[in-house]
Design a protein around this nucleic acid. Structure first.
Lengths: 252, 252
DNA sequence: GCTCATTTGTTCGTATGTATC
DNA sequence: TGATACATACGAACAAATGAG
């Protein structure tokens, strides 16, 4: 479990205008973002880092503290310092939160799996994901229910090359665990940020049937990109929501 | 400009299980959240705090660091440590950001002032703002244009008691400076968080006329609450957006 | 343009406490 | 119980930025 960091090609430069603690912080952060340190790995203990780089423990702590603060690392007294997974607040990372009003409580939601299959890449989606036009995708469809009423329908696209054998995941898993958790646990890809585009559109036949509305009636449409380290896109998702009785919540 | 903190009713307790640095952090944070330290104020220098509380400079720094990190304070070498205003990333705090697609650049937006007047409180809005039903409100209406095309229309409600004489603000100011900046600069109320509820609704006559759409046609509706310290609500806003050519952006 | 007092920034080293295994 | 590792706290020295004179 303990990850052995290689005995540093990167070294600290005391002549550099950059503070030593910052140089060390960058080294560690690069190891995380470069995938050499994966979620769950323990990093070298602070005292050993201090010896290796010939700096004081305080300086090592200065390097580690901001990484802990930004959510890259998790420190546990008596155990060690570990690489974190998805940094976003679990509440914020949830895409489908519905309220009828600000004063009301959040409605519990149920995910149902519809399908997961390999599909050919699309020009637009591959461009958004910044992958070659020829690369194939996984297409995941899910329906979200509140009080047994279909409330949101989502179609996700993920690069096959990045998530090999995702289609071997038991479908029940997609109903129990959030997608970003699966991505993180199975592939070591944490979710760092997301962008969403909101619009209104008329429901097509597929959406209308699933959301139980008249074809052509207006629904809330959200196109989302999910990003891991270094703003690398890993998912494109299109969601359709009815907002008859409940409305979609976002907090910042 | 320099704010003199009173010579501490609150004192540090070395017997307490809470670390000293944390106790000191809490004292400072309470002064900020309680309004005794306002945005722009300088806090007592670290060495003086160390003397006053009989702790080392390092401990004071440990107390200040997280407050800097969370955005309550801003430190400037050679100048001092100052109480920050709105903590949110300026980009994130902007409510009206529109893109035609993920790969496109953001469209520049123009705010136009429509009206600002005193209105009686409403049961629902006052409840959301957690103020007495009888309290009066300011109602601010603004129209947002992209490429001279009406794209969003917003109606904001703010408690009169909290923002006395807001209606004496020159209307041009609302077209040049974001509302949250005015609120912060004129009243010392920083924006800490927001919640939004997204839905789709038919445009009424007023909205349809301003957004230049057919009455009854579907528009994106966003109800927003803005909060300052301690999750105290200070604004209720209802926005209506057309998403013909551009879509509303949110990032997390 | 220069100097000086003030203030924060960086780095060091040490000691002791506490949690884990 | 002991070894390991992080948490808290202290204090000192020098660097760098600022603003006043």
């Amino acid at each position: 479990m303990r990850h052995e960091q290689r005995a540093d090609a990167a070294t600290l430069n005391s002549i550099s205008p950059l503070p030593i603690y910052y140089q060390l912080q960058t080294i560690i952060q690069n190891d995380i973002e470069g995938g050499r340190l994966k979620p769950g790995d323990a990093i070298t203990p602070e005292r050993k880092l201090a010896e290796r780089y010939k700096v004081s423990v305080g300086t090592v702590r200065q390097a580690i503290a901001p990484l802990v603060n930004e959510g890259f690392l998790i420190r546990m007294q008596g155990k060690g310092t570990f690489v974190a997974g998805t940094t976003m607040d679990p509440d914020y990372v949830r895409s489908y939160r519905f309220l009828s009003d600000f004063s009301e409580a959040e409605a519990p939601i149920k995910f149902t799996f519809k399908s997961l299959k390999k599909v050919a890449g699309s020009t637009r989606i591959n461009a958004c994901l910044k992958i070659a036009a020829g690369q194939d995708l996984f297409e995941l469809k899910r329906l979200m229910l509140i009080d047994n009423e279909a409330t949101a329908y989502s179609i996700s696209y993920l690069p096959q090359r990045m998530f090999k054998r995702l289609d071997e995941t038991p479908s029940s898993r997609f109903e129990k665990i959030a997608l970003y958790r699966i991505i993180e646990q199975a592939y070591g890809v944490p979710t760092i940020s997301r962008r969403e585009l909101f619009s209104v559109a008329a429901a097509d036949k597929e959406v209308a049937a699933l959301l139980q509305v008249e074809p052509g009636s207006p629904v809330l449409v959200i196109e989302m990109m999910a990003y891991t380290h270094k703003e690398r896109a890993y998912e494109f998702r299109k969601s359709f929501c009815t907002t008859r009785s409940r409305r979609l919540l976002r907090e910042y």
